[in-house]
Design a protein around this nucleic acid. Structure first.
Lengths: 237, 237
DNA sequence: TGCCTTTCGATATATCTTTATCGGGTATGA
DNA sequence: TCATACCCGATAAAGATATATCGAAAGGCA
C-alpha cells in the first residue's frame, strides 16, 4: 500500500500495458490451435520483440513461468485478462453519434474485453430517438441523470473537437471517472479523472512524417545500406 | 552503425511527433482568434505540459523563436505542417469497408492534413460496387493493379484481424510503403515498410486497467490525499 | 544417470525521454 | 536610458524504458 519504487500491485509502464493485449491476442490464437505452453521466445518471434521484454511485461501481471517449458497458455490468458480487468464489465456512455461513434457502437468484440457501450448521446435532433446497432441515441441533456442512476463510470467522446471539452465537463459532473477521448483535443480535467486520448491526427503525423522524410531524403534510411545485423525487424509502434 | 547523438536531418522521438499535431490544433485556434505570437509557456499551460518540453518539441521542426516574444503563430503553423508533410497530399487505399472503414472514409477533415483516401476495397460482394461517402468500394483483387497505376503508397487496414496480414501482404506487393493498421494484429512486414498500429484494444487495456486498479485499491491514488503541489495536471497520454 | 540445451528470473547496463538549470537577448515601463 | 521580467536555446541531470548478461532450474536425450 505504500508506494515503493516498483509498486507491488499497481505500476506498469504504459508501453507494457499496450503490449499485453497483443500477447493476449496471440495467446488466444495459440489456445485455439491447441497449444498449451508457450515461451517468451516464441511470443517474441511472433510479435517482433526480444524475449526479455516479453518476460518483463508478463512479470508485471504477476504470473510465474517454469524454466524450459515457459508458461501455461490458459493460465497466461486468464492472468492477463484479470490483470487488465477484462473479467468485469465496464459500462460506458458514448457521446457523438457520428461516423466514428457509429463504428464503435457496432463493434461487437468490445464486449469480449469488458467494455459495454450502453447508450449513445447527441445534440442533433435528427439523430435523437433513433437506434444505432441496438443502442438508443438520447439527448445529451439526459446524460447526467442517467449516468448517475446507472452508475456509469466510463465515457467515450466521439464528438467534434469544438464541443469535446464541454462534453467532458458534463461527463465529469455526472460522476464519470475515465474518458476515452477520440476528439483531437487535450481535455482539461481534474486530477482524479483518467483520460485516454485516441488522437488519429497524431497517428497521421507519424505516417505522413515518415512518408515525407522518405521522399525528402531520397528513400534514405539509417540501416538501408548496411548489412542488417538483426533479422527481420520492422519499424512499428 | 554509429547514429550520432542527434540525427542531423531526421530523428524525432515518437512522443514529440505525437504532440506536434496537438500544438498545431491549438495554434490554429489561436490564429483564428487573431493572436499573432505565442510562447511555449502559453502552449504548455493550455496542453498541460512544461514549457521546456514544448520548446524541445518545436526545436525538432527547426523553427526559431525570439526571446520575450516567443514564436510567430502563422510561421509556427506553417513549419509544423511542412515538417509533418501535411502540405503534400498522400493518397491512400483503404481495405475493409466495415463500420470503422466507413467512418474513416467519411472523415472529411483528413484532407486538411494531407490525407486523401481514394478508394475502398473489400471482399464482400454485397459491398463491392457501392459507394461510401463518394468513394467507390472495389474488389480487393483490383488493389495491386490500381495501386501500381495510381502510384498509391499508403494503405489503411480496417479489415478484421484474421485477414489483416494477408491484406498487408498484398499491399506490399502492390508497392505500398506505409500502412495504417487498425486491426489488432502486429503485422509482419519487411524492414522497409513503415507500419503504424492503431490498436483500440491496447487503449482499452489502459482504460480498463486503470478502472480496475481504482476499484481494487479502493479509489486510492498517489496524490489524492496530498495537497497538490503542481497546478491541475491530469493523467493523460 | 549425466550432459546439454532451453528458458525463466534477477540484476546490470544502455538508450531514450523528460525535466531542471543557466546564460543571454528583448520587449516593457519607469 | 536603465532596470526588470520574460522567454528562448543549450546543456546537464534525472527519470523511465529497453536490452544485455548471468545463474539456476527443468526437460530431452544419450
Amino acid at each position: 500500500m505504500k508506494p515503493e519504487k516498483h509498486l507491488p500491485g499497481g505500476a506498469i509502464p504504459q508501453a507494457s500495458l499496450r503490449r499485453l493485449p497483443q500477447y493476449h491476442h496471440y495467446l488466444v490464437e495459440l489456445e485455439a490451435k491447441g497449444v498449451s505452453r508457450v515461451s517468451t521466445s516464441l511470443i517474441g518471434r511472433e510479435l517482433n520483440l526480444v524475449p526479455v521484454q516479453v518476460r518483463k511485461d508478463l512479470q508485471y501481471t504477476g504470473i510465474v513461468g517454469r524454466p524450459k517449458t515457459g508458461y501455461e497458455v490458459k493460465e497466461l490468458i486468464q492472468t492477463i485478462e484479470s490483470f487488465l480487468g477484462w473479467n468485469n464489465v465496464n459500462e460506458a456512455f458514448l457521446v457523438g453519434a457520428g461516423n466514428l461513434g457509429t463504428a464503435l457502437l457496432g463493434h461487437e468484440r468490445f464486449s469480449r474485453f469488458g467494455l459495454r457501450i450502453v447508450a449513445a448521446f447527441d445534440t442533433d435532433a435528427a439523430k435523437i430517438g433513433s437506434w444505432i446497432h441496438d443502442k438508443a441515441v438520447l439527448p445529451l441533456d439526459k446524460l447526467p441523470e442517467l449516468a448517475g442512476r446507472m452508475g456509469i463510470h466510463l465515457g467515450i467522446i466521439t464528438a467534434p473537437a469544438e464541443v469535446a471539452q464541454s462534453v467532458a465537463d458534463r461527463m465529469i459532473e455526472a460522476g464519470i471517472q475515465a474518458i476515452w477521448n477520440f476528439a483531437p483535443v487535450r481535455l482539461r480535467v481534474p486530477e482524479r479523472i483518467f483520460v485516454h486520448n485516441e488522437d488519429l491526427y497524431s497517428s497521421l503525423a507519424s505516417l505522413s512524417w515518415k512518408l515525407a522524410a522518405r521522399f525528402h531524403t531520397g528513400l534514405r534510411h539509417e540501416s538501408d545500406d548496411l548489412a542488417e545485423p538483426e533479422p527481420q525487424r520492422s519499424v512499428q509502434e
